[in-house]
Design a protein around this nucleic acid. Structure first.
Lengths: 187, 187
DNA sequence: GATCTTCTAAACCGATTGGTCTATTAAATA
DNA sequence: TATTTAATAGACCAATCGGTTTAGAAGATC
């Protein structure tokens, strides 16, 4: 019988897509094995802690990605360029609205209670990184904070609306508008 | 053995809260019976179609509420007053950010596929009602459409962020800012 | 007060759940 | 080549799943 060999990073990415499509409760072990082609043996080899460990490692992986690709540039790079890049990074990561934010989705049901720290710190860091960049670009603290909140809220809302309407175009449209508002505020 | 008698409207409201907290997949029948105190007999008496019928009737009930309390006023009432009232209605319905939008939450996982029509038309009508009111208040079509999308997206994003951060204040803050933007646009 | 309908309680069903375990395979090390 | 280690496949488990059914209590109608 032929065997397929997976490595853990592959397993994380594959399982992540299943959680993204079905949600934490909706993703059963048989669903996961069926969609990823990973057997239960493999899954429990990589994740002895079961579903909860899978979700925790997936969230940590997502967080790492955002830290290196978006938060660090916002925190350390030239602010205006980093902000401009942020919109492209978001559009690329969320596949122009065809892919939802798993961490946001987890925030909406009782899954939040299991992972409240990871969820909170992801959004906190995003908002703070963006607000920091806006301040370094010349805005006062209160306005920077408000605009940063608004941008993150807008992205999350746009992802939801795109899925609700079954229309990805709305995501790009709103992203563009949010981008314009930030650039207007920066003058 | 003492019996508690429920009526269907009570059942709908009780089950709705369970779906809101646990999501569609997370809400098992035993969860629902435990939290609502309705026995399985009662639940299947009111909803012979099981969980799917419960969710469908709950969404219809929510939709009805929004139609009479928010969409109709926007569509038929004096536009500026209706828009002003909309923010209060949203704040009241979502309990200042402590209660999420069930229809939005359903949109994010595969539950969407079961109820895609109801989900799409809820958001479509909300946006169209608001855009219509903005036009009757004097805005041109394109700007009205854009601002309406932005408002609905903002409310949904704010609900998610409030839960993600465990901080309801952020909901009220963003709602206020969205309201200001609309009033500024209306001059 | 007998009858009928509405509603509740809970035992019960097969299917599925998350999770465990064993056997086996492929590769790495010796 | 012998041994060990890392990884996969899938049978298996008790518990729970969504759903059905039966029995009977509470109200309404007559």
């Amino acid at each position: 019988m032929p065997r397929t060999i997976f490595e853990k990073p592959d397993a994380i990415a594959l399982v992540a897509e299943v959680f993204r499509e079905l949600g934490y409760e909706g993703a059963s072990m048989s669903n996961i094995t069926a969609r990823t082609k990973l057997s239960k043996g493999s899954l429990y080899h990589f994740f002895p802690g079961g579903k909860e460990q899978m979700a925790a490692e997936i969230m940590a992986h997502i967080d790492d990605w955002f830290v290196t690709e978006m938060f660090k540039p916002l925190e350390e790079g030239e602010p205006r360029a980093a902000i401009r890049t942020m919109w492209e990074t978001a559009d690329r990561y969320f596949r122009s609205g065809r892919r939802i934010c798993l961490i946001g989705a987890f925030a909406l049901d009782e899954t939040r209670d299991r992972f409240s720290n990871a969820i909170r710190s992801y959004f906190q860091r995003w908002i703070e990184a963006l607000a920091g960049a806006l301040m370094r670009a010349g805005l006062v603290s209160t306005e920077a904070q408000a605009l940063a909140e608004e941008a993150v809220v807008g992205i999350q809302g746009a992802l939801m609306l795109a899925r609700a309407l079954g229309d990805e175009a709305v995501f790009c449209r709103i992203l563009e508008r949010l981008k314009q508002r930030l650039e207007t505020a920066l003058g």
